[in-house]
């Protein structure tokens, strides 16, 4: 069996890559993808724990996460489309009517 810590480490690496992506990417849609990447890495943690604890709860949680991710994607992309219709840019830096 592959040790639990390998999975957790991989998951942590993917999660941090996602976080880094959110920080360096300026394109809303890619930013959103980075967030999806983070969610995915969490799924890996959950499934790994589920296997090592012999408890199906982790996988059920993953299932719920997937549903949420799908809903989030639908709404998020709709928002992006709505914004694009009014502004024609997806660079979050250019979306600067509201100052940060």
């Amino acid at each position: 069996m592959v040790p639990l810590s390998w999975y957790l480490a991989l998951s942590a690496v993917l999660f941090t890559i996602g976080v880094a992506g959110v920080l360096i990417q300026r394109n809303a849609i890619v930013l959103f993808m980075c967030i999806e990447l983070m969610l995915n890495s969490v799924n890996l943690t959950l499934v790994a724990f589920s296997r090592f604890l012999g408890d199906v709860t982790g996988q059920l949680f993953v299932f719920i996460v997937m549903v949420v991710a799908a809903a989030e994607a639908a709404v998020g992309l709709a928002i992006i489309i709505a914004l694009f219709r009014t502004r024609e840019t997806l660079n979050v830096d250019e979306a600067d009517l509201l100052k940060l």
């Binding site: 989030e72 998020g76 709505a82 914004l83 009014t86």
Partner: peptide, 22 residues
């Protein structure tokens, strides 16, 4: 929907909210 500021607000809220969710 016609208002850019509202859409921007929505987008920012969405992105940071999802980030937090993660």
């Amino acid at each position: 929907r016609y208002d850019t500021r509202a859409s921007e607000s929505s987008l920012k809220y969405f992105l940071l909210g999802s980030f937090a969710t993660a």
